[in-house]
Simulated scan of single mutants.
Amino acid sequence: MDLSQISERISRNLTAELDFDDDKKEIIAYGIESLVLTVLGFLAIMGMAFLFKALVPTVIAAVFGGFLRRVSGGAHFDTPLKCLAFGAVVYSILGVIAKEIVNYGFQSSGFLLAFLLFSLALVAILAPVDCEAKPIHSQNFRRKLKIISIGFVILTIGVVLVSHNFLVNTSAVLGIVFQTMTLLPVFNKKRGITT
């Protein structure tokens, strides 16, 4: 039994007494699966970041990219384990890149904001991107995920405008940009652009 089936079973058990409709059951199952994957993924990312000696920027990139991923979806491997391993490596590399950018003094809020505006446009057009293993059936849920995705990128723009910590800003932007790239149709075999 895979994680998706376990999440659906837990959701059915939790909602049996509450007489929820299918949309609410889907949202609860999605939340359970997201929570478990988030915890496992975060532990893997922290382990890799420690090895790369870039714990702080990696965690920041992972928090920003990971939250956007939970609501925007994106490219998937065929198993959650492959996804977790790939994410741990990529976010650790992003942490190292952010650290090196700051160490070498390449500090430009203009570039960071340009990357975020590009990400905002892609998120507004493409999010949420589901996959065959976890399709989003509810149009209402799809619309909510799009709004939260857009809102989170706008919030990140606000963080970059207000924060004077270039390591935090760079790490956050790299996390958002990486996650946004996973929305591109070239990385998603099935559907095209969703509204």
Rank of each mutant, 00 (worst) to 15 (best):
I6T: 10
I6E: 09
I6G: 00
L18Y: 13
I32N: 10
S34K: 14
S34M: 15
V39T: 05
L40N: 10
L43H: 03
I45D: 05
M46T: 04
M46Y: 06
M48K: 06
M48F: 13
L51K: 13
F52Y: 14
A54P: 15
L55T: 03
V56I: 14
T58D: 03
V59K: 02
A61P: 13
V63G: 04
F64N: 07
F64K: 04
G66A: 01
F67C: 07
F67A: 01
L68I: 02
G74H: 00
G74P: 08
G74S: 04
A75W: 11
H76S: 03
D78L: 06
L84C: 14
F86E: 13
F86V: 15
A88N: 10
V90K: 05
I93F: 14
L94T: 08
G95P: 12
I97M: 11
I97R: 07
I101Q: 03
Q107M: 06
F111K: 05
F111V: 11
L112K: 06
L116V: 00
A121E: 12
I125C: 05
H137P: 10
H137M: 06
F141D: 03
R143T: 08
L145P: 06
G151H: 10
I157D: 09
G158F: 09
V162D: 08
H164W: 08
Q179C: 01
T180C: 03
T182I: 00
L183F: 00
P185V: 02
P185K: 10
F187I: 04
F187L: 15
K189H: 11
K190R: 13
K190W: 07
R191K: 14
I193A: 05
